[in-house]
Design a protein around this nucleic acid. Structure first.
Length: 938
RNA sequence: GGGCGGUUAGCUCAGCGGUAGAGCGUCUCGUUUACACCGAGAGGGUCGGGGGUUCGAUCCCCUCACCGCCCACCA
């Protein structure tokens, strides 16, 4: 006999092990089985499971289990990401906290060693947590972005893209993170609104030039008064950048400055003469209309500088301190200290014209949190524009479909405006770029050590070969950067190549995930069988970072989009709707919830709430509700057990004769259809609610209650049929619920087999999803049980309203029953008596005195409640009910009285309304008759 | 500035062209041998405002308001 409640803690680890040991997590090797493939969004290898992972992975597991049960070769491929910058940051912090020397002092090799140590220490945590979630991943195929196979894929992709001209080295402005001292991509920049100011500076004109500047205007905005100026005003939010100014731009059509174009200003502090240029970028309506140009430290200015032929002067070190390109007194000064110093000096020297306080957006590194500097460096770029075109097309033409569909707009928006992707990072933890540099060759064929020439190949042998082709007969040697200077001196005739120090953006390797994990570039059976994958389940926050890039790389290298469907799941928030964060302390730990309420409850909650394609506000109360749902199922099974509802070998649901059993059979068919459709879509919430409704509100509330009198009755045939049916329905419930609540269902699958009946062929996880014919839905049985349920509901409601004590068993007289109703009444009499707690049930010609009316379809029941009747209360009740019918009659009557409605509405709608009107009129008549009798009595 | 999403019962949300729904909470009743992590019943909404289309609008269109998010923007 089952315990009173399910004990998840005792069961979960045991079942998980049993599943894994059985090989159920591996895809079927049946060559005829259609593949169903999901690649996991790889969590950070050193991370731990948060509620967002729990949601995302629950949905993936629901899909995987569902399709596995449907007979597909289901593969859920797990793995982890090395998460370059994030992991490096964690380890650096740990080193600092432990009072260790920093990474730069430690050196690259030692530092990377430390990171691997940290990975070894904490790397298993996240995958073990996925196991606790019940994730049925094929662990035998687990991958890590830095393992050998994936690293080979990364090298191959880098080299091929380079060969195809889709990956190149370029000197341009990048988003520079001064804390990590690396370039980051546009996506890793977060705009934050901060308090700032526009500082208006007067730059003096060179050579004594002056001009007339308008200072007063009439109503039409025409200048009425001018003043003579020997300076031009520019405004900036970053005063320190003025040290790098190489020009001032005005709009070509700006009358105010027309005569100044071509003239110079003398840059204060620096004393450099810089030209005033005309450029469309300058907006006459903003500020003074003149804008200072710092090509080396501003993205717009860089473009202006290019067009106007202005030089770029870099004034910053990688730490964002002023470098030796600025006057000595500012060298080595931090950028923010320099800002203050320059403003102070401007004020002192009288060229600070105005300070305009403002709030504006400033770029910050999403990991470091520090202000990003545009910085001029050599980096590797991917030609994202070219790769984006087929990726756009694949979604436009439906090869890949987003669910919900509106996310496609987001995807399109980004890809249509895509910029070159900077993929090199000045970090140590990641895939080292397979590029080596040698000296450039001048016109005379002599090496120029000061100019780098890149060679790109997968191996050093290939590099040497390429270098030979380029440098001719000279001896060629690969050395480390550290040894480079010494090598030049000791081996002057030799060409020295050294490897690029940088690593690749983490997302570069993630972009290959759907095929690199299958073994590509090797031609493995997995690549052939499992690419492209079926559904990607992920959050909208990484559509750009990851989804779009996988689409680009997948199509480019595999010739086919990596997924047929992209399911975007919501973001989980706390119950007040706030984003969870450690600093706010509102983080919900899924593992704590699993400990407390069981994995199944957490999974069901997340599944049920996943319909919200935006925010999920998670509350513990909700999870408790679904824990209760599990208990309900547990106890229903327990009830079945207590009543000998054992599975019967060869039982055929088509053979049942009892209306009750025919009815529940039809309900099972309907539920199977709903759940199957929902998980195929997928529309997880719909599947969850169909299951919940059927199991609790249909099976427990009605079928089992209606089965009780049968199981306690004398009719042995009906009893046997109902027992077998109950066991069968329970089996179907376990199967349908298994993808969402795998543990409790598997446990019950096992326990119910202990009570006798045929042995189980397999664990539930490996059991096939059923198929049932529509013909199992019996309309007559459904109508009969529907009638019974309605009648019971009516009587219960009436009893409650009239305060009939639960122990009282009033008689029921049925008036006006036709042939059909009499038959139903005969067949369902026992159940009606039992569920409505009635005494005698008789057929009568008229309602006896002292009864209250009950609508029973065409017939009327007269419930003998004389002793409980409070005439006034009953009058009020009847009057209220009649009023309800009257408003219904009015509404429907009005509709049916409208010729336009009759002419234009669909016939079935008109018919439905006619029926509704007739029913309401009949019910009203019955109740009015009862009210009349009551009046006569009272 | 551009875009996306939202506004339905006290709360959290379904529904998305033909009688307004669920869960939780609230109130009343209940020791009917599965379950109090339960059962029975009840109350509770002019579906954000205003227009329009339609025989009919919570649902489609327009518009306004408010909330949230994404992208762009540091003169």
């Amino acid at each position: 006999m089952l315990e009173k409640t399910f004990d998840p803690k005792a069961v979960e680890p045991r079942l998980y092990e049993a599943w894994e040991a059985s090989g159920a997590f591996k895809p079927s090797e049946d060559p005829n089985a259609e593949p169903f493939v999901i690649v996991i969004p790889p969590p950070n290898v050193t991370g731990s499971l948060h509620i967002g992972h729990a949601l995302n992975n629950t949905l993936q597991d629901v899909l995987t289990r569902f399709h596995r049960m449907r007979g597909k070769a289901a593969l859920w491929l797990p793995g982890t990401d090395h998460a370059g910058i994030a992991t490096q940051m964690v380890v650096e912090r740990q080193l600092a906290a432990a009072g260790n020397i920093g990474r730069r002092d430690m050196g690259r090799e030692a530092f990377v060693e430390k990171v691997w140590e940290w990975k070894a220490e904490s790397g298993g945590a996240i995958t073990n947590q996925l196991r606790r979630l019940g994730a049925s991943c094929d662990w035998s195929r687990e991958r890590f972005t830095l393992d050998d196979g994936l690293s080979a894929a990364v090298r191959k992709v880098f080299v091929q893209l380079h060969k195809q001209g889709l990956l190149y080295r370029d000197k341009r402005l990048v988003n520079w993170d001064p804390q990590f001292q690396t370039a980051i991509s546009d996506l890793e920049v977060e705009q934050k609104e901060v308090d700032g100011a526009y500082w208006h500076f007067a730059y003096p004109l060179a050579d004594g030039v002056t001009y007339q500047h308008p200072v007063e205007f009439d109503d039409e905005g025409k200048p009425t008064q001018y003043e003579t100026r020997d300076y031009i005003v520019v405004a900036t939010t970053r005063p320190e950048t003025m040290l790098g100014d190489t020009g001032v731009a005005v709009h070509p059509s700006d009358e105010r400055y027309k005569d100044l174009v071509g003239k110079d200003v003398v840059l204060p502090i620096v004393g450099r003469r810089i030209p005033i240029v005309a450029d469309d970028y300058a907006d006459p309506t903003k500020g003074s209309g003149a804008v200072k140009i710092t090509p080396a430290h501003d993205f717009n200015d860089f473009q202006v500088g290019k067009r106007a032929g202005l030089p770029s002067i870099n004034i910053l070190t990688p730490e964002a301190k002023l470098n030796d390109a600025v006057p000595a007194e500012y060298q080595g000064m931090d950028r923010f200290a320099a800002r203050k110093a320059i403003v102070a000096r401007a004020e002192e020297e009288g060229w600070l014209k105005e300070i305009e306080k403002t709030r504006h957006m400033v770029p910050h590194g999403d990991r470091s949190g520090v202000v990003i500097e545009p910085y001029l460096t050599d980096q590797w770029y991917v030609d994202a524009y070219t790769l984006a075109q087929p990726a756009l097309k694949a979604v436009e033409n439906g090869d890949t479909v987003f669910e919900p569909k509106h996310w496609e707009k987001t995807y399109f928006e980004w890809l249509r405006n895509i910029e070159p992707w900077c993929v090199s990072r000045q970090l140590w933890w990641g895939h080292r770029i397979p590029a080596w540099f040698g000296p450039e060759i001048d016109e005379l064929g002599n090496p120029v050590v000061s100019a780098e020439r890149p060679f790109v190949a997968e191996t050093e042998e290939e590099i040497i070969a390429e270098a030979k082709a380029f440098y001719g007969d000279r001896p060629i040697k690969i050395v480390s950067v550290a040894d480079l200077t010494a090598a030049y001196e000791t081996e002057p005739g030799t060409i020295h190549l050294y490897r690029d120090e940088d690593v690749l953006d983490t997302w570069f390797s993630s972009a290959l995930w759907p095929f690199s994990t299958l073994g590509w570039p090797e031609k493995t059976p997995d690549v052939a069988r499992f690419y492209p994958t079926s559904t990607l389940v992920t959050g909208f926050d990484i559509i750009f970072f990851w989804v779009a890039r996988m689409m680009m790389m997948g199509i480019h290298f595999m010739g086919e989009a990596p997924f047929k469907q992209v399911f975007i799941n919501a973001l989980v928030r706390d119950e007040k709707g706030a984003k969870m964060s450690k600093s706010k302390g509102n983080v919900i730990d899924p593992l704590a919830l699993i400990d407390e309420l069981g994995c199944d409850a957490v999974r069901f909650t997340l599944t049920a709430m996943s319909g919200q394609a935006r925010d999920i506000k998670l509350s513990k109360q909700r999870i408790e509700g679904y824990r209760n749902f599990g208990t309900k199922l547990w106890n229903a099974t327990r009830f079945a057990q207590m009543n000998g509802c054992v599975r019967v070998e060869g039982f055929d649901p088509a053979s049942v004769t009892q209306p009750l059993n025919k009815w529940i059979r039809g309900e099972v068919v309907k539920t199977l259809g709903e759940v199957t459709k929902a998980f195929e879509a997928p529309a997880f919430d719909e599947g969850a609610s169909a299951l919940y409704r059927f199991i609790w509100n249909v099976f427990c509330d009605w079928y089992l209650e209606l089965a009780k009198p049968v199981l306690n009755g004398e009719d042995e045939a009906a009893k046997a049929e109902t027992r077998a049916m109950t066991a069968w329905v329970l089996d179907q419930i376990l199967i349908l619920l298994h993808p969402v609540m795998p543990f409790i269902t598997e446990e019950l699958w096992d326990k119910t087999a202990e009570e006798g009946g045929p042995a189980r062929d397999a664990m539930l996880i490996s059991t096939r999803w059923p198929e049932m014919p529509e013909s199992w839905i019996d309309a007559e049985a459904a109508a009969e049980i529907g009638w019974l349920v309605d009648t019971v509901g009516e009587i219960r409601s009436l009893r409650a309203e009239m305060n009939v004590p639960p122990s009282a068993k009033p008689a029921l007289a049925v008036v006006g029953a036709g042939e059909g109703t009499l038959g139903r009444l005969e067949r369902q009499r026992d159940l009606l008596v039992s569920l409505a707690r009635l005494g005698e049930v008789a057929i009568a010609d008229a309602a006896p005195a002292g009864t209250a009316p009950v609508v029973m379809g065409e017939a009327t029941g007269a419930l003998g409640v004389a002793e409980f009747i409070d005439v006034a209360a009953e009058k009020a009740r009847l009057t209220k009910e009649i009023a309800g019918h009257v408003s219904e009659i009015e509404k429907t009557g009005k509709k049916l009285g409208n010729p336009d409605f009759l002419a234009r509405a669909k016939p079935e709608v008109v018919e439905e309304n006619r029926e509704r009107l007739a029913e309401a009129e009949a019910a009203k008549a019955k109740l009015e008759a009862a009210l009349g009798r009551l009046a006569a009595m009272g």
